[in-house]
């Protein structure tokens, strides 16, 4: 968990990432609020808020008496949403930093095309370890 954004938002993003990676398949059950709380060492109310955020955005749904499940089609939904955010969150700061360092657009394009795509789940695991 980092301090820059609310923890419940980070929990929601974490679940979203698991859905995008296929760790949580569509129509599969997601861990309970208490399990999230114990895993991330946060207050269960905060974890619940994160889960609710995804219920409100139709990514998760509740089966009464059983728990939370990933809605069919939610992966496509998330991919679309993340693509929208990609420009703002990644490309804009990248271009700004490149401009600061005098890297031209052509150079930047070449650098991107030469950078191998990292196996995303592994990258994330090391990422979490750093935070924890």
């Amino acid at each position: 968990m980092d301090e820059s954004r609310p923890i419940f938002v980070q929990i929601a993003e974490q679940i979203e990432n698991d859905i995008l990676d296929g760790v949580l398949a569509e129509e599969s059950q997601v861990p309970s609020t208490n399990e999230f709380a114990a895993f991330y060492r946060i207050n269960p109310a905060t974890a619940g808020k994160g889960v609710n955020l995804l219920v409100e955005s139709d990514v998760l749904y509740k089966k009464r008496g059983i728990g939370m499940f990933v809605r069919a089609g939610s992966r496509a939904l998330l991919v679309a949403k993340r693509r929208e955010q990609f420009q703002d969150e990644f490309v804009r700061p990248l271009v700004a930093e490149a401009a600061k360092l005098g890297i031209s657009a052509e150079e930047l394009t070449r650098m991107i095309s030469h950078t191998p795509a990292v196996d995303s789940p592994t990258a994330r695991i090391t990422g979490t370890e750093q935070v924890i």
Binding site: T33, N34, A37, A38, R41, I42, N43, P44
Partner: peptide, 10 residues
Amino acid sequence: YDRLLEDYAE
């Protein structure tokens, strides 16, 4: 912390 959270949740 872990025991407190776990027990509080239950």
